[in-house]
Design a protein around this nucleic acid. Structure first.
Lengths: 189, 189
DNA sequence: CCTACCGATCGGTAGG
DNA sequence: CCTACCGATCGGTAGG
């Protein structure tokens, strides 16, 4: 077993924070996960809080990058919404630990970093809001939709996926994306 | 200040578990919240884990009772779905602490109690699934809807409300219910 | 309901 | 990356 890199430590921290929660994960457990003593981790990182900052930051960046790429697609508002949905689902499934930590453990961040995360979420939500507004204006969507609550509804569906979706099930990621898209557009009636 | 009741202790525990998380709440803090020493709590309860069991159990019961009443409504599948949505929102807004603890802290329960919670959730989800199935069969909803994923989508929207809704805002609970209902039925197009 | 206290565990440091 | 250790805090108990 070769020496551990700082990246290994952050990745393992993401796994444990996602599975057991930040406050329920000790540095000794994290060490054990890597075959190290807890105290040895301090040669890789400054402390536990820094690990949380890093993991949550990665989650935030993944979403941010994915959204920017999706919004840059040319095409109708409907197509851009579909791209946003697809991108979000890819991030959730490809970076599950970071996403779960980002969604569920950000409360444990110190005030300044928590403020940054909230800012990042607002920006992300704004991408969805804008697409809905455009679509309402150009006739792709209902003219009387509410960009604020409706974008929250779409994002609620997307953020919950981490809680129930299993890759081993019968629904693959493509099907999942088109079901979310169809539900968001047409609902159940 | 008169003596504290067991109920006071459970209610305060719900508040702290919801706000700060189970593992980040100490018995001493809980005591402080009630004007007591941490050790004094043990004359009211057996321990910290029991408090979690009780708070989460209350959350589960609130949802269960609300769903049973809503499903018993006579009327179309659409009307019963609307009743379920309305009931869920009332529970979320009236018992916020218990609901948040139920949704976010159940992972900290011991195995047996966690199994009970999962069972309770399954039963609750089944109520939504049944209504969707009925509506698909009798023509109230799309015949090709997927009861499993579509009920998860509706519940995702409902469960996320706790995370963003503020009673001080411009949307009251009636408006919120009808927006969720409309979105679930018709989507944004 | 309080005081006094227990053993265990926590995040983190010193020194190699 | 380890050993040895620190002060602080944890859930909980004894005895009143």
């Amino acid at each position: 077993m070769t020496r551990r890199s700082r990246n290994d430590v952050v990745a393992a921290a993401g796994r444990l924070f996602a599975q057991r929660g930040y406050h329920n994960t000790s540095m000794r457990e994290l060490g054990r996960e890597l075959g190290l003593e807890g105290s040895s981790l301090y040669s890789h990182v400054d402390g536990k809080q820094q690990l949380l900052v890093e993991v949550v930051g990665r989650g935030a960046d993944f979403f941010q990058d994915a959204a920017q790429a999706a919004v840059a697609t040319d095409g109708s508002a409907a197509q851009r919404l579909e791209a946003l949905i697809r991108a979000h689902i890819s991030v959730v499934l490809d970076y599950r630990d970071e996403v779960r930590t980002f969604l569920n453990e950000a409360y444990a961040l110190d005030e300044q970093h928590r403020a940054l995360v909230i800012e990042s979420r607002d920006r992300y939500e704004a991408a969805f809001r804008s697409v809905l507004k455009e679509g309402a204006a150009d006739g792709s969507f209902r003219a009387d939709l509410d960009p604020v609550t409706d974008s929250i509804f779409v994002l609620s569906i997307l953020n919950a996926i981490e809680r129930w979706y299993r890759a081993e099930g019968t629904v693959d990621r493509e099907q999942l994306a088109s079901r979310v898209y169809q539900f968001s557009l047409e609902g159940i009636s």
